[in-house]
């Protein structure tokens, strides 16, 4: 999964900041905790062989915590060129989107609480298209995201619809 994904152009993809793995891992933990708790509750309520449900839940949780964040991180990438941004993402369903800067309507740089803790940010480009009305690129260093925003803004000639 680390090689450039299928459907790539010639240019190499940039990886996101490695702290993004931690963000994904913590989000995974937030998802896994209720799962394990529910399994534990069911374990007590149902007459299943002891430990069966819980062990399944723990395996799934371990995947969510250890394996999946890394693979998702590896599946993501971007390429920032002179006049366009290419964003690749998705483990199972891969999507590979290119937005020319000439089509950007407005730009968001957002930080969730987790992202802020690690100094990361999400860059979102909005276009006038009905499909891909907004294209998000998470897991950038906040300073990088701001710099990218400035560079894109310089490329957007006129702030007009």
């Amino acid at each position: 999964m680390t090689e450039p994904p299928e459907g790539s152009d010639a240019e190499p993809l940039h990886q996101l900041h490695h702290a993004y793995v931690k963000v994904l891992r913590i989000s995974g933990a937030l998802l896994a905790a209720p799962l394990v708790a529910a399994a534990a509750a069911l374990e007590m309520a149902l007459p299943t062989p002891p430990g069966l449900l819980l062990s399944v839940a723990v395996v799934v949780a371990a995947l969510l915590l250890l394996r999946v964040p890394f693979r998702r991180y590896n599946a993501r990438g971007y390429h920032f060129s002179e006049d366009r941004l290419r964003v690749v993402s998705g483990l199972l369903f891969r999507s590979d989107t290119v937005v020319p800067f000439g089509r950007v309507q407005h730009i968001d740089v957002a930080q969730g609480p987790l992202e802020r803790a690690y100094g990361l940010a999400t860059l979102t480009l909005h276009t006038a298209g009905t499909h891909n009305a907004s294209v998000s690129l998470p897991g950038l260093l906040h300073a990088d995201a701001l710099a990218m925003r400035e560079r894109i803004r310089a490329r957007v000639k006129r702030d007009t619809m």
Binding site: F93, T97, T127, G129, N132
Partner: peptide, 19 residues
Amino acid sequence: KLQSVSLVQGPLARRHGYA
């Protein structure tokens, strides 16, 4: 007049080389 272009592949699409 297009705004963006994206390619999307599901698991089967990746296996069989289409998008």
